[in-house]
Amino acid sequence: MDELIHTLKTQIIEVLCLEEITPEDIQDDAPLFGKGLGLDSIDALELIVLLDKNYGIKLKNPAEAKGIFASVKTIAEYVAQHRTK
């Protein structure tokens, strides 16, 4: 799980162009949206593509994604359970 969390952090930083952030800056269970990293709805769409491309997970709508994208930890848990690649 720790490895997956680290990989996810690296991938998130890359696809969202979080230039001045390192994986160490992101707490496993800190909120990603709103106050956390200041991500917005376009970032959420980009994360949906990330899950599809890298893990074969197809989320149907942004509302479903809300709970999953609460923190890196919740994403990792969801990926571990649902990944198809």
Binding site: V15, I42, D43, L45, E46, V49, D52, K53
Partner: peptide, 11 residues
């Protein structure tokens, strides 16, 4: 290359 569009690039 990747088969899926990037929403932020499309924007």
């Amino acid at each position: 290359n990747e088969g899926l569009a990037s929403p932020s690039t499309f924007l």
